[in-house]
Amino acid sequence: MSGPLRAGLVGAGMMGRHHARVLRQVDGVELVGLADPGGDPHSVAGATPFHESVASLVDQGIDIAVVAVPTALHETVGLQLAECGIHALIEKPVASTPTAALRLTEAFESSGLVGAVGHIERFNPALRSLRSRLGNGDLGEIFQVATRRQGPFPARIADVGVVKDLATHDIDLTAWLCRSDFVSVFGQSAYKSGRPHEDLVAFSGRLADGTVTNHLVNWLSPFKERLTIVTGSRGTFVADTLTADLTFYENGTVSTSWDTVAAFRGVAEGTVTRFALEKKEPLLAQHEAFRDAVLGLPSQAVSLRDGLQALVVAEAAIASAARHEVVDPRSLLPLSTGAYA
């Protein structure tokens, strides 16, 4: 392909404005048009042509598109782009329901198009470093993954609850870090702010490799927190994705001649190491990965099928909270295994 990829942006809201900014920074990509029937409330278009419909944007001539519209519209917009032969990066969650996500996935795959989903945490420097270290065996056997993702309610979210909007981040990053799928979920949710969707959830899970997981997510906290804690046989990694810091708390070894105490297989505090990481903006790294996938280059872009996998687990967490029982995500939709390999 000669010249830069011609990119269109569908959705000029809160997330759309960030995509517009970053698209203008990506080498080999040119933002040539935006579309949003609701107008341009954040004035992100500037001199870039602005359209009131996806069809008009497509007619302008684009190679790729970024979809940053409300979740309920992901399927409609995505299928329209696939039908027009346009590669697309769709914000997460990939769709409102697993059935819609499956239709999107199959539409792009059957057309030979790149369909990607915006699970941006995979591009956070702290988590990328953590996944590499886990893969190298730095933690030994992985025992548990615990995440905390909480903060104030974002006014931009109206069509999904906290599970699909926020917990999908933790679902995807957990399975991706461990390279293993969820096989069971048990959750509790609450509706505390008078909205039709849940705004608080706590759920535990188990991965196929036996790792135990625990996730606390809400829109009710006055402070913002984004932590991923992975505990294993050699210690604990703590990744703060707000600051992109990764810290390793190593197990200490304490010798003792007291037989009764020595028989207890506990751990002690050891060396604490905070790693120096190159901190590239995750959204920029995500766009570069999407560009590379479209160009047929090696890429870590997150596929629509991976987005489908995360959405099915989110549905399992919602179903579990409603039924007060453990749910196997695999029972909700047939999926191939190995999505996180």
Results as ranks from 00 to 15, higher is better:
1 M>A: 07
11 G>S: 07
16 G>C: 14
17 R>D: 10
19 H>W: 14
21 R>T: 05
23 L>W: 05
27 D>C: 01
29 V>Y: 04
30 E>F: 01
37 P>W: 10
39 G>A: 03
57 L>I: 11
65 A>I: 04
70 P>A: 05
72 A>M: 13
86 I>N: 07
95 A>G: 06
97 T>P: 02
98 P>S: 12
100 A>E: 15
109 E>S: 04
117 V>N: 04
122 R>W: 02
123 F>M: 02
126 A>V: 07
128 R>I: 08
130 L>H: 14
141 E>C: 07
143 F>Y: 15
151 G>W: 03
154 P>E: 10
159 D>R: 15
161 G>E: 05
168 T>I: 15
171 I>G: 00
173 L>M: 14
178 C>Q: 15
181 D>I: 03
181 D>K: 01
185 V>P: 01
192 K>H: 09
193 S>A: 13
196 P>A: 11
198 E>D: 09
200 L>Y: 15
201 V>C: 08
201 V>L: 07
202 A>D: 03
206 R>L: 06
212 V>L: 08
213 T>I: 01
216 L>E: 08
219 W>G: 05
221 S>E: 01
222 P>F: 13
222 P>W: 07
222 P>H: 11
226 R>W: 02
229 I>V: 06
237 F>V: 01
237 F>T: 02
243 T>D: 12
244 A>T: 10
246 L>D: 01
249 Y>A: 03
249 Y>P: 01
253 T>R: 13
260 T>I: 13
265 R>M: 06
265 R>E: 13
266 G>S: 13
267 V>F: 13
273 T>Q: 14
275 F>T: 08
282 P>M: 06
283 L>C: 03
284 L>D: 03
289 A>R: 08
292 D>R: 15
300 Q>P: 05
303 S>W: 12
307 G>V: 08
309 Q>V: 11
316 A>L: 11
319 A>S: 14
319 A>V: 12
321 A>D: 10
324 H>V: 11
325 E>Q: 14
338 G>S: 03
339 A>L: 13
339 A>R: 11
339 A>F: 13
